[in-house]
Amino acid sequence: METVLFKSRYYAAYQSKKGRCFFVDIQDRRIKMSFCQLLAFRQKILAIDLDAHFDAELNRHGIEILTLCNREHLFVLDTLEVVDLKMFIQGIFTMSELHTLVTV
């Protein structure tokens, strides 16, 4: 059982109701993540240079290769998916912040 944390156009994040872990849906796959892995995931996404996607020299094909959980998973993302992913990861943590504000 899990509850939705945040959904964007292409992705969804859940937190487990029983276990202390997270699930993220990316391209037809549901990936289980510990919090540390979620932070590492976030770090990787923040590090993606979105500007390079609009520069034919820097990123000619406009794709991004993303590996997760110590390279257990590999994804190839296009520019739209990357834009959405950046908003998605922001959303996950903003939800937690809002939650904190509401409950104090």
Partner: peptide, 10 residues
């Protein structure tokens, strides 16, 4: 709803 992110990160 519990907030797992907050539980993990202070």
């Amino acid at each position: 709803m519990k907030d797992l992110v907050r539980q993990k990160l202070s």
